[in-house]
Amino acid sequence: MGKLLAFTMVAATVATVVLFWRRVWWFPPNISTVGAGVDGDFRLTLWVTGILFVAAQLILAYCIGRRPKAGRARYLTGNLRMEVAWAVVAGATFIGLALHSYRTWARMYFIGAPPNAVKIQVEAEQFAYWFRYPGPDGVFGPMHLRLINDATGNYFGLDPARDPTSRDDIVTATLGIPVDRPVELLLMSRDVIHSFYVPELRIQQDIVPGMVIPIHFTATRTGNYEIVCTQLCGLGHYAMRAPLKVMTEAKFKQWLARQAAEQ
């Protein structure tokens, strides 16, 4: 039984290492400027934990699988020096990893969006996202809760008849953004907690009712991606998503004009 268990442990360890090494299943390719930092932090952590994982499993397997010795074990109640040394090394390594991740975190959250960022409002509800661009005037017209009506397509409760700043606002169901230009999203929820997650962007942020949460990022590759909800928000949670379209600056302008014409 000892041999079998030791073999199983080694096999599980080898299989895990191979699957990580060969990247059989892996992250989707990164398309944001901050993503390289996330991937780098992950790789570093993977190396550290990978070494610890393999070492612990192999020592364990060795202890189980080796030929049992006769007689009694040595009466050994510990070794404070080794224990302290290990605690210090482990502590320093783990804290080092956490501190190392500071740079990426700071780029995501401590530094605000640059002034030239494209500002877009994101409104989440059970179970959809709606997006609003401020239009040429750069101002989001006021929202009137009483006017919000999904059946008539007034997702943001706009009243263009009375509010001049609402007249040029563009409301879409697709998040279209230009490539290589900072984007700032203002996340709002109408009902329960939702989330904004695009695996390729390495961005995830809960959308909390009662709060406007700003996030910013710069996409580096054009293409069509998917925004998905990651916070359990009700029965349609699994199907809550919206398309993300990353376009060149010129195509983005065209696209936005087309959306404006549909309003």
Binding site: A128, Y129, T152, G153, T172, A173, T174, R241
Partner: peptide, 8 residues
């Protein structure tokens, strides 16, 4: 009448 966006 608004166009309904079904691309979700």
């Amino acid at each position: 009448r608004q166009v309904i966006h079904m691309n979700e």
